[in-house]
């Protein structure tokens, strides 16, 4: 299966580089410190108003990592192939464009998941060894994890799209970070005192609120639809660009 061959190559290309392990280590440390800080803060002050999970998903470092990871993970994907010319080798093999794009996406999402594994393990450990996860239930944690992966998918898809537009990794990273940060900023626009339909529209894009909702164990289908359709849209656009690259004349 050609798709599987491509996916294997993508996953390998992430784990082959030593920087991958440095990034993984750095993320694990940041997650661990952030987690430990809130754990200590909440137990010593005996806080019951919100859960540790809520505190985590609303913390600065949680979003900092989430926003910065996608551009870093995807800036290479197509830009490097465009620069080195290996894209010509791929596209003259009997493979379809969408297979190439999907493989890039699956590879990036796999590595993204691994980067968040430490945080998941922090919560799992708390549950197993302390039996007392500071307020959050298993379903709250799973819903948060799902929302995290959905957001990750959307951001990675944006990153891959940006990467296929250029042959410079730097340009790709700046483009995708700009786009991702712009969407994320809508979370704060709500507080500008909007009313009526505009407010409804902006709330639809308020990832901060949606993450908070999920972490309280409340399922909302709107962010699911938004992130999934956004992901598909950007992967589709990437496939179009690859075809258009060839059809451009």
């Amino acid at each position: 299966m050609v798709l599987w061959v491509l996916i294997q190559r993508e996953i390998k290309s992430f784990f082959i580089s030593p920087t991958a392990y440095i990034v993984l280590f750095a993320c694990a440390v940041i997650h661990g410190l952030n987690f430990a800080f809130w754990l200590e803060y909440m137990t010593s002050n005996n806080i019951k108003d919100f859960t540790l999970l809520q505190a985590t998903v609303n913390s600065f470092f949680f979003w900092f990592l989430l926003l910065i990871q996608a551009p870093v993970l995807t800036m290479r994907s197509f830009a490097e192939e465009n620069r080195s010319g290996t894209i010509e080798m791929i596209l003259t093999a009997p493979v379809r464009e969408w297979e190439v794009v999907l493989a890039k996406f699956v590879g990036a999402l796999s590595f993204f998941s691994v980067l968040w594994l430490p945080l998941a393990l922090d919560f799992l450990g708390l549950r197993l060894f302390w039996g007392h996860p500071l307020g959050s239930s298993g379903s709250m944690e799973l819903l948060s994890l799902a929302m995290l992966l959905l957001l990750g998918s959307l951001f990675l898809a944006i990153g891959i799209f940006a990467s296929c537009l250029t042959r410079s990794q730097m340009v790709a990273a700046i483009l995708s970070f700009g786009a991702i940060f712009a969407i994320f900023s809508l979370s704060f626009v709500v507080y500008l005192g909007l009313i009526g339909q505009t407010r409804d529209l902006v709330t639809y894009f308020s990832f901060l609120d949606q993450m908070d909702t999920f972490s309280r164990g409340i399922f909302d289908s709107r962010p699911l639809v938004l992130t999934l359709s956004g992901t598909i849209l950007f992967l589709f656009l990437t496939e179009r660009v690859l075809q258009w690259r060839r059809l451009r004349s």
Binding site: S13, S84, G85, T86, M89, T92, A93, P94, R96
Partner: peptide, 17 residues
């Protein structure tokens, strides 16, 4: 796709991983 299956192509500057 079918046409590409029959071709072995070596590009000008031999880009490789």
């Amino acid at each position: 796709l079918e046409a590409r299956r029959h071709v072995g192509y070596m590009p000008e500057n031999v880009p490789l991983y």
